[in-house]
C-alpha cells in the first residue's frame, strides 16, 4: 500500500514491522522499567514483603519471655513468615492503578493507542507484564521472608518447614493473591482512567467495604463478609483463620479471582468502546 502511495520513496525493509502481541509485550516491558516511580514502588513492595515478617520475628523473639499465654498459643511462624503481604499489597495495588492511569493523565495513552489501534493488545500486555513481574518478585520475596523467619524462630523451637500443614499453601498463596490483586488494580485504573480515582475505588472495594457491612444486621453481615474481596482473597495466605467465618483458602482465592475477572472484562469493554 505504501509503495503505491509513495513511489519515489526508497523502501527501508530494516525498519518495517507490524503489531503483534509479543511486540506489544516488549513495549510494555520497556515502559514499566523506564519509569523511576515504578522501580521505586516495586523495590518498596519487595522490601516490605521480605522485611516485615523478619522484623516481627526478631521483635517477638527478643521479648519471648514477656509474651503471655494467649500470645504464645496463637504464635504461628507461618503467618509471620508471610505477613509482609499486608504492606506489599498496598504498593502493588497503587502501582497497578498507576500503570494505566499514568498514561491517561499524561496523554501517553493516545500514543499507545495510535501505535496499537485495536487497544486490547495494550491492555493484555500491561496485565501480562505487571502480573509476571509481581508474581516473580513476590514469590522470591515471600520465600526469603519465610525461610529467614523460620531460622530466627528456631531459637524458641517455633520453626515450621514448607512441608508442614498450610505452609507451602500460604507461601505460594502470597504471590498468587498479589498477582490477582495486581490484575484487579490495573483493571480499576483502566476503568476509572484517573490515578486518584482509581486508587480511591481500589481502597474502597478492598478496605472500606468490610467496614460498611458493620451497619447491616449481624446475620446479614456474617453471610456477606466472607465474600468481600479482601476477606476472600486473604484466606489463601493465612494459616490460622477461623474457617467458621471465612471461606476455605482455595475457595477464597477463587472468589477473589472471579472479582478480578469481572474487573478485567469491564475494563476491556470500556477500553474498546470509549473514546481515548
Amino acid at each position: 500500500m505504501s509503495a503505491a502511495v509513495a513511489p519515489t520513496r526508497p523502501e527501508a525493509p530494516s525498519i518495517r514491522g507490524r503489531v503483534t502481541q509479543m511486540n506489544v509485550i516488549r513495549s510494555e516491558w520497556t515502559k514499566l522499567w523506564s519509569l523511576r516511580s515504578t522501580r521505586y514502588t516495586l523495590l518498596a513492595a519487595v522490601i516490605a514483603m521480605a522485611g516485615l515478617g523478619i522484623a516481627i520475628a526478631i521483635a517477638q523473639m527478643t521479648r519471648w519471655s514477656q509474651l503471655d499465654q494467649h500470645d504464645l498459643s496463637t504464635f504461628d511462624s507461618i503467618d509471620i513468615g508471610v505477613s509482609g503481604y499486608h504492606v506489599a499489597q498496598l504498593a502493588i495495588g497503587v502501582l497497578g492503578v498507576l500503570v494505566i492511569s499514568g498514561e491517561y493523565s499524561t496523554g501517553m495513552i493516545r500514543s499507545s493507542f495510535m501505535a496499537v489501534p485495536k487497544r486490547l493488545p495494550v491492555f493484555w500486555a500491561k496485565l501480562a507484564v505487571f502480573c509476571a513481574v509481581t508474581f516473580v518478585t513476590m514469590l522470591v520475596a515471600t520465600f526469603v521472608s519465610f525461610f529467614v523467619v523460620q531460622a530466627i524462630v528456631t531459637q524458641h523451637g517455633q520453626q515450621h518447614s514448607l512441608g508442614d500443614p498450610h505452609a507451602l499453601r500460604a507461601v505460594l498463596g502470597v504471590p498468587l493473591f498479589l498477582t490477582a490483586l495486581a490484575a484487579m488494580s490495573v483493571s480499576l485504573g483502566a476503568l476509572v482512567r484517573n490515578t486518584a480515582g482509581g486508587i480511591a475505588l481500589w481502597v474502597f472495594l478492598l478496605f472500606v467495604l468490610p467496614g460498611i457491612t458493620a451497619i447491616l444486621p449481624h446475620a446479614t453481615a456474617d453471610s456477606i463478609n466472607p465474600y468481600l474481596p479482601l476477606n476472600a482473597g486473604a484466606t489463601i495466605v493465612t494459616s490460622t483463620f477461623d474457617f467458621g467465618t471465612h471461606l476455605s483458602p482455595w475457595c477464597g482465592l477463587g472468589v477473589f479471582a472471579v472479582y478480578t475477572v469481572i474487573a478485567i472484562v469491564a475494563a476491556a469493554v470500556g477500553l474498546v468502546r470509549r473514546d481515548a
Binding site: 525498519i15 513495549s27 520497556t30 500514543s111
Partner: peptide, 10 residues
C-alpha cells in the same frame, strides 16, 4: 523505543 517495539522497529 517503547513506541518502536510495538512494531518490532529496531
Amino acid at each position: 523505543l517503547a513506541m518502536a517495539q510495538t512494531h518490532g522497529i529496531g
